[in-house]
């Protein structure tokens, strides 16, 4: 006794046929044991002989489009439980009743949840978003000069291209270390992180605009980026490798610390660098993004003597360095 899984085109759910016969005929005609409504399948497409439990035999009945097993065209071959055949646009998997299935994916394991993050709908949506994002940025940054369509096209393509390359790199790692590429999951993940980081820097920007001075915008941005990058690397490793939790944590932490450290070191080295022009916070934004009230001119001027005191200190600091 065998069970045949019949899966039509993308997006349709498979049906399962449980059969007792020794010889099973599959095709479009009503006299078959398994009838499949697929115009690319012959009336009588293949016959399957399962009389010998140790070695099943499949024969193509001289069909127009042939039969594929693991992407190779066959006319007659032996198969075993779990093998997949493609006829027309339909995929068949044949199991015996004792076939050992993979254990269920856990709803409580992040890894297993991520494996399911591969639906076509979300992928299309994300790719559209990642293509649109740089185009919107270009449009909003224009000062009125005409923007040529190719500018948008190049921006959109390079944005998609970057995500593709990143996802492909992870995917290659997965193929090597786990023999599964999971390209779609990785592409979705990459784009989501890209979008989240853009959104976050926008939030930082607006917050910083409302509260100028204080911690530099650059620093806040770097902290967010480091955290996001750490999470991204952690999830990428989770999907593409079989590394232990501890190793994944160490690697992503190293990436975070590396990024923050590089920023801190460059920032520190440039602190005393002489700048002939003031590097003030010159953000001005649409009034809709300004949520706070202002202070009086007198109140603002009362803070200005501190500027001179700090200028004196800055003149001393760099002096000591000479």
């Amino acid at each position: 006794m065998v069970v045949i899984e019949v899966k039509g085109s993308e997006g349709t759910s498979p049906r399962f046929e449980r059969l007792n016969q020794h010889v099973i005929r599959i095709g479009r005609a009503p006299d078959n044991d398994v009838i499949i409504d697929d115009p690319y399948i012959d009336a009588h497409h293949i016959s399957l002989d399962v009389s010998d439990a140790a070695s099943w035999h499949v024969s193509d009945l001289d069909s127009v489009n042939g039969t594929l097993k693991s992407h190779h065209s066959i006319s007659s071959t032996t198969i075993c439980s779990g093998d997949e055949l493609t006829i027309g646009r339909t995929r068949l998997r044949i199991f015996d009743l004792e076939h050992r299935m993979q254990p269920a994916l856990s709803l409580r394991t992040l890894e297993h949840l991520l494996f399911g993050f591969n639906s076509t709908g979300s992928l299309v949506l994300f790719v559209a978003a990642i293509a649109l994002y740089p185009c919107i940025a270009i449009y909003l940054n224009s000062s009125g000069a005409e923007i040529k369509p190719d500018t948008y096209l190049v921006a959109a393509l390079s944005s998609i291209g970057t995500s593709l390359v990143l996802a492909a790199a992870w995917s290659l790692l997965g193929r090597l270390l786990r023999s599964e590429s999971r390209f779609r999951v990785l592409l979705n993940l990459t784009i989501v992180f890209w979008l989240v980081s853009s959104l976050l820097s926008l939030l930082v920007y607006i917050t910083y605009y409302n509260f100028p001075g204080g911690m530099g915008r650059g620093f806040a941005n770097v902290i967010f980026m480091a955290v996001l990058l750490g999470i991204y690397v952690y999830l990428g490793l989770l999907i593409s490798t079989r590394l232990a939790v501890r190793s994944r944590q160490i690697i992503s932490l190293t990436v975070m610390v590396g990024l923050l450290g590089t920023f801190a070191v460059t920032d520190f080295s440039r602190r005393d660098q002489y700048r002939p022009n003031p590097s003030y916070d010159g953000l001005v934004r649409s009034p809709r993004l300004l949520f706070r009230s202002g202070e009086s001119q007198v109140g603002y001027r009362a803070r200005l003597p501190d500027v001179f005191a700090q200028a004196d200190e800055l003149a001393l600091d760099t002096d000591a360095e000479d």
Binding site: Y274, Y280, D281, R292, G294, S296, Y300, R303, T318
Partner: peptide, 16 residues
């Protein structure tokens, strides 16, 4: 030049 001038110190604010 660096040997003659210190770096700028700035104060920003929203003023009515």
């Amino acid at each position: 030049r660096k040997q003659d001038l210190g770096n700028w110190s700035c104060e920003e604010g929203f003023v009515t």
